[in-house]
Each structure stands twice: as C-alpha cells, then as structure tokens.
Design a protein around this nucleic acid. Structure first.
Lengths: 234, 234
DNA sequence: ACCACTAAATGAATGCCATTCATTTAGTGG
DNA sequence: CCACTAAATGAATGGCATTCATTTAGTGGT
C-alpha cells in the first residue's frame, strides 16, 4: 500500500505532527503498548536517583513515562509492586561471583560489602525486603541459591545455613542505614558533661582518621561474624 | 458585665450541659492546657498498640486527645517529632541494668535481646532512629552512656567502643525486622526445583523444631559478635 | 467478515493525609 | 491596665494513592 496521494486537509489531523516534546495521546488503547514492567522499573530508578524516594510518586512516575497515573494500574497493583520491581532489579546487582571462585571467607566478605553498598543508597526498600516472601522476587531467590550453595560447598552444616545467612543479612541491612547517617550523629551537644564515657569514646574515634566510621563498624562486625561462622564448618 | 437577665432561649446554648462524653470546647485558649508532650506520647503509644503505625495519624492522635489536629502543632513541629517522642520513650525500656552487675558477655547479651525485643514491635521507627542525632533523644543518649561505660570497664580499647556498639546496633535493628517476617517467607514456591541448595537448607531448618527461626538466627549472630568483640579486650 | 472479549489508555473523581493560617480566648509580666 | 504570648478552634491547601467510567484498539472464534 504505497501512499494515499491526496488526503483532504480536514482528515489529515490524525498525526498533527510528531513535534518535539508534547504529543497528546487521546483516550483509548494506543496502537502499541506504551508501558511494560521493564520500562516502569527503569523509570522508577531514574526518578529515585534524581529526586530520591520522596520523588517516587505514582504521579511523577506516570509523568516521566508520558502517561496518566491510572495507566500504571494496568500493570501493577499498587505502589508496593513498583518497589518490588526496583528491589528485585537491585538484588541482581549484588556481586555473588566470588562464591564460584574464592574461598568461603573472602566470598562472604565480597558479597556482604556489595550487598550493603547496593542497598545503602536504597534504605527505604529495606522495610519492604525484610518481610518479602522470596517467591515474589526471582532475582532475590537466585541470590539466596548461590549463597547457600557456597555455604554448603564450604562444609557448612545444612541446618545452620539459613540462620547464618539471615544473621548476615540482618547485619547488612542495619549497616546500610549507618552509611546514610549524618556525620554529627554522635555529637552529644549540651549533654556531653553528663555522658563522659560515651563522649570520650566518640572523640577518640574521631581522632583516628580518614576511614568512614560506618565502614569501620561494618568491617569490625563482618569480620567477627565471618570468624564465628567459619568455626561452624565441618 | 454580670449577666443579661433574660437570655432568650435561642441564645442560652452556651453550655448545653457538661454531658458524659462529648463536651465541645469552644475556640480560644482553654483555662488549663489540654496537651503536653507526655500526654501526646502516651496517646501515640496507645494508638500504635491498638491500630499499628498505619493508625498513627495526626488526625487520629488529635481525636484520641479530644483536640483539633492543628492543636498538636503548638507542641510538636511535625509528625516526625511525635515519632521521636515515642522512640525516646521506648529506648528507656531497654534493659541496661546488667552492665552494672554482670560480666561483659552476659551484660551485652541481655542488653541486645532486650533492645531487639522492644523494637521488634516498632520497626517503623527504625529508619528514624538509625539516622537520629543523639542530641535529640536524651534517653537514647543515656543508654549509650551506660553501654559504653560497660565496654570501657570491661577493658575495651577506647577507639573501638563506638564501632563495636554501632555494629551491634546494626545487627539488632536488622534482626528486629526478622521477628515480624511472615512464617512462610522462605517458601520458594514453584521455583523450588531451580533452587535445590536453598530449598534443602530451608527444609532442614524447618525440621529442627520449636524455636522461632528469627530467635535462632539472632542467637547465632549475637554469639559470634560477642565472641569476636570479646577478643578485643585488653 | 463480523462480533464478543480483553487490553491499555484517558480523565474525573474520592478520601485521606500532614501541614498552615487566621481567629479566638486566656493567662502573665511590666 | 495593657501588650504579649500560649493554646485552642476551624477552615483551608496541596499532595498522595487509588478507583471507576469511558474510549479505543487489537484478537480469537465462528
């Protein structure tokens, strides 16, 4: 079908012109679907990285996808679903490769640091993840499979594998919050006189130096957990 | 201006009667203050324990205090302030008494379990606490003082005290979420075939028994941390 | 070739939320 | 006595997630 030679001007308004910015879509199902889960996920991540989690609203998400807010609900059931999409996407970024190639200690160390770093920038997801049935998050389940296989291969008794992973994860989630804490979080202000022990400890910490306090604490706790758990291997 | 001797019945509605429930307060400052911080805190806790954190809205809080929502803002600057009041109140419930009477290991153990138990029922506070400058929370600061004094007395090197406490706290906060997780959180559903290692580990955990999984994981991690940190003492 | 069905968009509500502001009344310090 | 401040009401405000009726387009069956 080559070309209709002479569309009367009055009927040519079908595509007023694919102008630069603002093409208005009229109501009704569009010829090709505008939205899909991957696109929604990507747009949510873009919004989060630009404006933080406060900026992630259904209205803003819709706007960034050039769509009415209600259109999103053809693809997700709720905002929580959007957070789940983001969560599962991020979990796939956690580095589990060391479990295939390195001794257990260093594999756990790499995994834990990577896990913490990924979610330190996404702490609002933590309350969602922490109570999330793994069924709902395939990438998350995949991560657990790799990690638990690593524990098993390292000689971990089977009945302790899940508990050890849960304990590590708890520590990791808690530590992710620390990363975002303000630098002066331990400034005791006018109460300093009545809290000599704590104030002294904070001061001596500050003296030490360049490493970020959150990193020092994370390293300290992680090494204790690795050492303690390593002793369980048979 | 004593009294207009004959109020026409239509104007006599000033005090319809101090009936049982619903006395309407007219606008303007009341003879005695209705609100104070302690009352707001207590009402917030009552609301939370009855309807959960979803039920804690400024409107509901005001209603439970027989006050207009805007009245709250004469005493707090924002809803976050209310959460801070609750947080500080709860922290005072954490048991730190063992630091005065018991060896370091068992004192830390008691403190950690108590801390976790208190906040397991209040996980929505965790994102608030985790980044909260201690200046804003006197009870919280008091807890830190007791704990750090206990560490110091046990021979902990001063520069490590804060890091060790932070690491323990991170683990405690993360573990508080676990307590609230649904029992079937690790059910891998239809993906079970593709995750043999993890599925097996979950099953063998279930076999074991009566203790709550969250408690087993918490105990495992806590003992590893205590053992690891205990070795730092001089 | 039609027709029922379903999918995917719009646009207009709904109800809830935290917060603000003008106003009213009551104590308080000079 | 008077100016000021504290503490309440009540009426907005703007933002939020979500729902629903409506419109349009593709699809599978006969």
């Amino acid at each position: 079908m080559p070309e209709s030679p002479a569309d009367s001007p009055s009927t040519t308004e079908r595509e007023p012109a694919p102008k630069a910015g603002a093409e208005r879509r009229r109501a009704g199902r569009p010829p090709a679907a505008v939205l899909d889960l991957a696109g929604i996920t990507a747009a949510a991540l873009r919004l989060i990285s630009k404006n933080g989690y406060d900026g992630l609203t259904m209205a803003a998400l819709a706007r960034s996808l050039h769509v009415a807010p209600s259109a999103l609900y053809n693809h997700v059931e709720s905002k929580r679903d959007v957070l789940l999409l983001v969560e599962d996407h991020l979990t796939a970024l956690v580095d589990v490769t060391a479990f295939a190639a390195e001794p257990w200690e260093s594999a756990v160390r790499k995994w834990a640091w990577s896990y913490r770093d990924v979610f330190a920038a996404h702490t609002p997801l933590i309350p969602v993840i922490a109570v999330l049935p793994v069924t709902d998050a395939p990438q998350t389940l995949a991560m657990y499979e790799t990690v638990s296989a690593g524990f098993r291969a390292a000689g971990f008794p089977e009945e302790r594998i899940v508990s050890a992973i849960v304990a590590l994860e708890s520590f990791i989630f808690g530590s992710a919050y620390d990363v975002t804490a303000p630098a002066d979080i331990f400034d005791s202000g006018t109460m300093a006189d009545s809290t000599p022990s704590f104030t002294g400890a904070v001061r001596s910490l500050a003296v030490q130096g360049h490493e970020k306090p959150a990193d020092v604490a994370f390293s300290l706790g992680l090494e204790a957990l690795i050492a303690g758990f390593g002793a369980l291997r048979e």
